[in-house]
Write a protein that binds this DNA or RNA. Structure first.
Lengths: 127, 127
DNA sequence: CGTCTATGCTTGGTCTACCAAGCGACCTAA
DNA sequence: TTAGGTCGCTTGGTAGACCAAGCATAGACG
């Protein structure tokens, strides 16, 4: 742990690109946390080899790995998912929609949900 | 499209299990939307073969596929991710945290972020 | 009966996410 | 100089996500 940050030919110093793709984003967050690939690897239980490939854009990590990385970097999973294009937008919208709310309600049976949705549609659909 | 819903030995009628695992959940939502495997397949650009396996719990789909399915079923990606165990909890928490907010701010340079975080920590950490 | 269409399921294979092991470059200490 | 440490990166291999094609069943219509 002693060290300062050493500089390497293709090291973090090369972070000139825009951090709009996932790899650059993760690399930036990692550097802001002052973590090496192997340190982040240990924190996230993801191999340093794969982390390197992810940061360089060789592979697109699964959500499971993304979540581990997010936890290790103390980022919310939602933020990282949004960067990965797995979530539509910024975590700002909280519109669920009537139909989805109905379908997700666990106290309703399937038949009750169908009936509710049918009625809801009959109210909202102009024939 | 004419048809009513046909019943098959291991068909939707067998939806007696609790919809707490992802497969059962997707199958339930699909049946509530009155979609066949192939219809959902076309809407989501996921093969019906794979959808069948996902619903039966043979495979755990990637987030990309999950998002496609969520869109096709008109569910929010967050809800489905939560079911898949990819999100920590219900979409109810809106705590971002100061450090994360800093790191995600695009108008700050890396140095500015580091400085801010350092100051923030100096305020919040008891020595 | 036979044929058509729709359903969900199974199979064989391809692609890629992911890891263990190792490499070259760089630094510091003896 | 050599030895030991860390850095990021590359390579070979394995497991599983994912699909195209085909199967079996069931209803509708002739």
């Amino acid at each position: 742990m002693g060290g300062g940050a050493a500089r390497y030919p293709r090291d973090l110093a090369a972070g000139d690109g825009d951090p709009w793709n996932l790899g650059e984003f993760i690399r930036l967050q990692r550097s802001l946390a002052n973590l090496s690939l192997r340190q982040l690897s240990e924190l996230s239980n993801v191999s340093n080899a794969y982390l390197s490939q992810v940061e360089r854009g060789v592979y697109r990590p699964s959500a499971h790995v993304l979540k581990s990385i997010a936890d290790a970097l103390k980022l919310s999973a939602e933020s990282v998912y949004a960067r990965a294009g797995l979530l539509d937008e910024e975590p700002a919208q909280r519109n669920v929609g009537v139909e989805e709310a109905i379908r997700l309600d666990e106290r309703l049976s399937a038949e009750q949900k169908e009936a509710l949705i049918r009625v809801y549609r009959s109210f909202t659909t102009r024939s």
